[in-house]
Protein backbone atom coordinates (compact mmCIF):
# COMPACT_ATOMS: atom_id res chain seq x y z
CA UNK A 1 0.00 0.00 0.00
CA UNK A 2 2.90 2.33 0.77
CA UNK A 3 4.11 1.97 -2.80
CA UNK A 4 0.76 3.25 -4.03
CA UNK A 5 0.64 6.30 -1.72
CA UNK A 6 1.86 8.50 -4.58
CA UNK A 7 -1.61 8.21 -6.09
CA UNK A 8 -3.58 9.33 -3.02
CA UNK A 9 -1.17 11.03 -0.61
CA UNK A 10 -3.24 14.22 -0.87
CA UNK A 11 -6.23 12.41 0.54
CA UNK A 12 -4.14 10.95 3.34
CA UNK A 13 -2.89 14.41 4.21
CA UNK A 14 -6.45 15.71 4.08
CA UNK A 15 -7.55 12.94 6.48
CA UNK A 16 -4.73 13.78 8.89
CA UNK A 17 -5.50 17.52 8.78
CA UNK A 18 -9.19 16.80 9.20
CA UNK A 19 -8.30 14.71 12.25
CA UNK A 20 -6.06 17.46 13.60
CA UNK A 21 -8.87 19.98 13.23
CA UNK A 22 -11.40 17.65 14.82
CA UNK A 23 -9.03 16.88 17.69
CA UNK A 24 -8.36 20.59 18.18
CA UNK A 25 -12.07 21.32 18.42
CA UNK A 26 -12.96 18.24 20.50
CA UNK A 27 -11.15 19.51 23.61
CA UNK A 28 -13.50 22.46 24.03
CA UNK A 29 -16.42 21.14 21.97
CA UNK A 30 -19.72 20.77 23.73
CA UNK A 31 -21.09 18.14 21.40
CA UNK A 32 -22.57 14.99 22.77
CA UNK A 33 -19.94 12.41 23.57
CA UNK A 34 -20.25 8.85 22.33
CA UNK A 35 -21.20 6.51 25.15
CA UNK A 36 -18.73 3.93 26.43
CA UNK A 37 -20.86 1.08 25.13
CA UNK A 38 -20.87 2.62 21.64
CA UNK A 39 -17.16 3.18 21.89
CA UNK A 40 -16.65 -0.48 22.56
CA UNK A 41 -18.77 -1.51 19.64
CA UNK A 42 -17.01 0.93 17.36
CA UNK A 43 -13.61 -0.30 18.53
CA UNK A 44 -14.74 -3.83 17.88
CA UNK A 45 -15.91 -2.87 14.39
CA UNK A 46 -12.58 -1.17 13.70
CA UNK A 47 -10.70 -4.24 14.92
CA UNK A 48 -12.85 -6.44 12.70
CA UNK A 49 -12.14 -4.25 9.70
CA UNK A 50 -8.41 -4.30 10.46
CA UNK A 51 -8.56 -8.07 10.79
CA UNK A 52 -10.44 -8.32 7.48
CA UNK A 53 -7.78 -6.16 5.87
CA UNK A 54 -4.85 -8.18 7.18
CA UNK A 55 -6.41 -11.52 6.33
CA UNK A 56 -7.17 -10.21 2.86
CA UNK A 57 -10.57 -11.82 2.79
CA UNK A 58 -12.25 -8.89 1.06
CA UNK A 59 -11.63 -9.35 -2.63
CA UNK A 60 -10.71 -7.00 -5.47
CA UNK A 61 -11.66 -3.35 -5.41
CA UNK A 62 -13.55 -3.70 -2.12
CA UNK A 63 -10.35 -4.88 -0.51
CA UNK A 64 -8.48 -1.89 -1.87
CA UNK A 65 -11.21 0.48 -0.70
CA UNK A 66 -11.15 -1.11 2.75
CA UNK A 67 -7.40 -0.68 2.99
CA UNK A 68 -7.68 2.90 1.80
CA UNK A 69 -10.38 3.63 4.38
CA UNK A 70 -8.39 2.09 7.21
CA UNK A 71 -5.26 4.05 6.29
CA UNK A 72 -7.24 7.29 6.08
CA UNK A 73 -9.04 6.49 9.33
CA UNK A 74 -5.77 5.69 11.10
CA UNK A 75 -4.28 9.00 9.97
CA UNK A 76 -7.49 10.75 11.03
CA UNK A 77 -7.18 9.24 14.49
CA UNK A 78 -3.52 10.25 14.70
CA UNK A 79 -4.49 13.77 13.61
CA UNK A 80 -7.23 13.84 16.24
CA UNK A 81 -4.87 12.67 18.96
CA UNK A 82 -2.20 15.25 18.07
CA UNK A 83 -4.82 18.02 17.71
CA UNK A 84 -6.47 17.26 21.04
CA UNK A 85 -3.17 16.93 22.86
CA UNK A 86 -1.87 20.21 21.45
CA UNK A 87 -5.11 22.02 22.23
CA UNK A 88 -5.12 20.63 25.71
CA UNK A 89 -1.54 21.79 26.15
CA UNK A 90 -2.38 25.30 24.87
CA UNK A 91 -5.54 25.53 27.02
CA UNK A 92 -3.77 24.28 30.11
CA UNK A 93 -0.90 26.71 29.63
CA UNK A 94 -3.18 29.72 29.07
CA UNK A 95 -5.29 28.75 32.10
CA UNK A 96 -2.15 28.48 34.24
CA UNK A 97 -0.93 31.81 32.90
CA UNK A 98 -4.30 33.42 33.63
CA UNK A 99 -4.27 32.01 37.15
CA UNK A 100 -0.72 33.21 37.76
CA UNK A 101 -1.62 36.66 36.49
CA UNK A 102 -4.70 36.73 38.67
CA UNK A 103 -2.83 35.69 41.81
CA UNK A 104 -0.13 38.25 41.06
CA UNK A 105 -2.84 40.92 40.71
CA UNK A 106 -4.39 39.81 44.03
CA UNK A 107 -0.98 39.97 45.65
CA UNK A 108 -0.50 43.49 44.37
CA UNK A 109 -3.83 44.56 45.75
Amino acid sequence: MAALATFFWGWLLTAALLGFGMGWIAVVHRAQAVSKAWMRWLALLAAALVAASFTRIVPGRFGYWLDLFLVMFALYLCGCAIGSWLRDWVVTRSTLAARAAKSAQNDNL
Partner: peptide, 13 residues
Protein backbone atom coordinates in the same frame (compact mmCIF):
# COMPACT_ATOMS: atom_id res chain seq x y z
CA UNK B 1 -12.33 11.53 27.01
CA UNK B 2 -11.66 13.69 23.95
CA UNK B 3 -11.92 10.74 21.54
CA UNK B 4 -15.58 10.39 22.40
CA UNK B 5 -16.04 13.73 20.64
CA UNK B 6 -14.02 12.94 17.52
CA UNK B 7 -16.91 11.29 15.71
CA UNK B 8 -18.27 14.34 13.81
CA UNK B 9 -15.10 14.41 11.66
CA UNK B 10 -15.78 10.87 10.49
CA UNK B 11 -18.60 12.15 8.30
CA UNK B 12 -16.36 14.32 6.05
CA UNK B 13 -13.70 11.59 6.30
Amino acid sequence: KWSSKWWPGVIPL
